[in-house]
């Protein structure tokens, strides 16, 4: 039986409509105008207990709005939603005790106090006895490699340390469902890897269901066997990540700094030229041609610097929609 079930879930926001300039400002002051903006349209999916599902889509696609509806923060405009046997927006205690939402750019920890103070409050809010809370904090801190960071004011922690402390706070009450909105945003590569390891570990040990949005393909590939792909509020893909990867032309981003500027045509044989600014070149090259293409690039041009990376997920998905592969 699914632990998360959404049927025809929709959300429309009413937003103020103001024209620029003094005239627009005066008009807006006298007679406010607003318009309806659909953020999520008839999204349906079901997630079984213990699954880790990646929620993909470009900025403004409706990922965060969906997470807010699933966690009960906002009311859907239409459709039905059920999480852990409850209707989220009713915000019953039984529901709130079974979920947690971690937002990469927002914190629940009290900014000016050490994380331990917030954890004490959380333990009291969720009715976890002191000894049990202490044991859980110790266990999660070990998994997250957190030590004296828990006794330093949150404002003095690095972004990575803060995110780990946030995860600890979010999991103290052992939620059945964990929603994560960009949990690795802004973290360095090592911190990203630690967070991914921790999430995989928690899922394996406790069977926590995880639904996460991320801009980093690394998060998705490391954690999510299944992905949901949303674009302009519509769900376009729901299935295994490898099935999606087959649809995406797997490619790598190659950034070059050349000794001499070259014409755009010179790069046509290697892949798609994304940008050319003086001596700086950005190419997208299919993965299976990468080794050969890089070798030829190095042989053909005087290269001062070369960097190979995954293209941003937004770009890949954008291409996907441009090519009409999905839909």
């Amino acid at each position: 039986m699914p632990i998360i079930r959404a049927e025809g879930l929709s959300k429309t926001y009413r937003v103020a409509d103001k024209q620029p300039g003094l005239l627009g400002t005066l008009r807006h002051f006298v007679a406010r105008r607003s318009r309806d903006v659909p953020a999520v349209s008839e999204v349906s999916f079901a997630i079984e207990p213990g699954e880790i599902v990646g929620f993909l889509g470009p900025n403004g696609a409706g990922k965060t709005t969906t997470l807010k509806m699933l966690s009960g923060l906002i009311h859907p405009s239409a459709g039905t939603v059920e999480v852990a046997g409850c209707v989220p927006f009713r915000r019953q205690g039984r529901f709130l005790r079974q979920i947690s939402l971690v937002m990469g750019q927002k914190q629940q920890l009290i900014w000016d106090l050490p994380p331990l103070d917030s954890l004490r409050v959380n333990a009291a809010v969720y009715g976890i006895e002191d000894a049990e809370a202490h044991r859980r904090i110790q266990e999660l801190a070990d998994m997250l490699e957190l030590g004296d960071e828990l006794t330093r004011p949150v404002r003095k922690l690095s972004l990575g340390e803060r995110m780990k402390a946030e995860l600890l706070a979010a999991l103290l009450h052992r939620p059945a469902v964990l929603f994560l909105d960009e949990p690795t945003l802004g973290l360095d590569v090592n911190a990203q890897a630690r967070v991914r390891r921790f999430l995989a570990d928690i899922n394996r040990r406790t069977g926590t269901t995880v639904l996460l949005t991320s801009h980093y393909m690394g998060d998705i590939t490391a954690l999510c066997p299944r992905v949901l792909l949303i674009h302009q509020g519509h769900l376009f893909f729901d299935g295994r990540l490898d099935a999606l990867t087959e649809r995406l032309t797997p490619c790598r981003e190659v950034r070059l700094e050349l000794a001499e500027p070259q014409p755009a045509a010179a790069f046509a044989p290697f892949g798609a030229l994304e940008s050319l600014e003086g001596r700086r070149v950005r190419l997208l090259i299919p993965q299976e041609q990468l080794t050969g293409a890089v070798a030829r690039l190095l042989a053909m041009f005087a290269v001062l610097d070369l960097e190979v990376s995954e293209p941003p997920i937004e770009e890949l998905i954008g291409r996907l929609f441009q090519q009409g592969v999905v839909g």
Binding site: S71, R91, L96, S100, K106, Q108, V125
Partner: peptide
Amino acid sequence: QGRLSPALLQPL
């Protein structure tokens, strides 16, 4: 500032 949302997600 968006600080209300985390508080709303707790059973208090």
